[in-house]
């Protein structure tokens, strides 16, 4: 659905997006993550044809966004970060206008209007002026606008930005529902959201792609995923040395004993699970083992590890 090839955007001195390439297949819900200023919005703007790229190529559903911008834009429903709307229009009037410039007419337009108003929960505010709506409703009007021409691809730039937890939940539910019919590229930095919504994640920082994979794979590959903690009773030095001998163990660090139990943090190679071997070792040596747990990495740790500046 989306094809981006060596896309670069340079502003006078600053390179916002630096030679990125990725593809998004049909029907996927892709999370586009990165710290502020990483180049997310710039990438999305190039994809929607609002900013022309400095070099490189991007296409949506086979339409080059630069050579055939109108063809590409017909395939895209775009919600910009700031959700710009005409504040002095009524909800239905605004959506009618947007539907018309996206090529809908007559009965088809009316049918779509009713559908999107329903889908986005706007039925009871459709006669209100947009300026009187709360941020959550404005966001929904923006999404309704993105949806109105039934685009195969939805691009949502931080759709839950600035909403309260209830509104975030309702937007998230909406996106989950939409994900069944549309390909979605959603940029955000709320990571719990991504884990629930997306089946693919692209992490970008400093204009470059740091990782692109499924959430499960990303979490699995991280260094933090290879950390096992164990509480064992026995001679600390001997235990440490024995643990170090085990297969696939990279580093053992001993933390202070609490109430007679020695705490160990054991770093193993990320794809292996050393817990069984540790348990066996403790049993063979007759060292009591109280707890043995593998650290579950979160997306947040993945994100921090990939994008921290040190």
């Amino acid at each position: 659905m989306i094809e981006i090839d060596h896309l670069t955007k340079r502003f006078s001195r600053h390179t916002a997006v630096d030679d990125i390439s990725f593809e998004v297949g049909s029907g996927q819900v892709v999370g586009f993550l990165g710290p502020n200023g990483a180049g997310k919005t710039t990438t999305l703007r190039m994809l929607t044809g609002y900013l022309p790229p400095s070099s490189g190529f991007a296409s949506v559903d086979g339409h080059d966004v630069f050579r055939d911008p109108l063809g590409a834009r017909r395939k895209i429903g775009y919600l910009p970060e700031s959700v710009p709307l005409y504040l002095d229009m009524r909800v239905r009037e605004y959506l009618t206008f947007r539907g018309q410039i996206k090529g809908l007419r007559g009965r088809g337009l009316k049918r779509r209007l009713d559908e999107v108003l329903d889908q986005c929960g706007l039925q009871n505010v459709h006669r209100k002026m947009i300026k009187t709506l709360s941020k959550g409703y404005r966001q929904r009007v923006g999404i309704a606008d993105a949806l109105i021409h039934e685009p195969p691809l939805l691009i949502l730039d931080e759709p839950t930005n600035g909403l309260d937890p209830n509104q975030i939940r309702s937007i998230r539910k909406l996106i989950t529902r939409l994900g069944k019919k549309h390909t979605i590229l959603v940029s955000t930095h709320i990571l719990s959201e991504v884990a629930q919504l997306c089946n693919q994640i692209i992490i970008i920082d400093g204009g470059r792609i740091k990782a692109a994979d499924t959430p499960a794979n990303l979490v699995g590959q991280m260094r933090v995923a290879g950390r096992v903690t164990a509480e064992i009773k026995g001679p600390a030095e001997e235990i440490g040395a024995a643990l170090q001998e085990l297969k696939a163990v990279k580093k053992v660090s001993h933390e202070l004993a609490k109430d007679g139990w020695e705490h160990f943090s054991i770093f193993v190679e990320s794809s292996t699970d050393a817990r069984e071997r540790i348990a066996n070792l403790a049993r063979d040596k007759k060292w009591p083992l109280r707890s043995l747990s593998r650290h579950e990495a979160t997306l947040e740790e993945v994100f921090v590890e990939l994008t921290r500046k040190d």
Binding site: R45, G49, I76, P80, S82, P84, K102
Partner: peptide
């Protein structure tokens, strides 16, 4: 900012 929504429509 509505120029952005306007110019990203077809």
């Amino acid at each position: 900012g509505t120029l952005e929504t306007l110019l990203t429509a077809p």
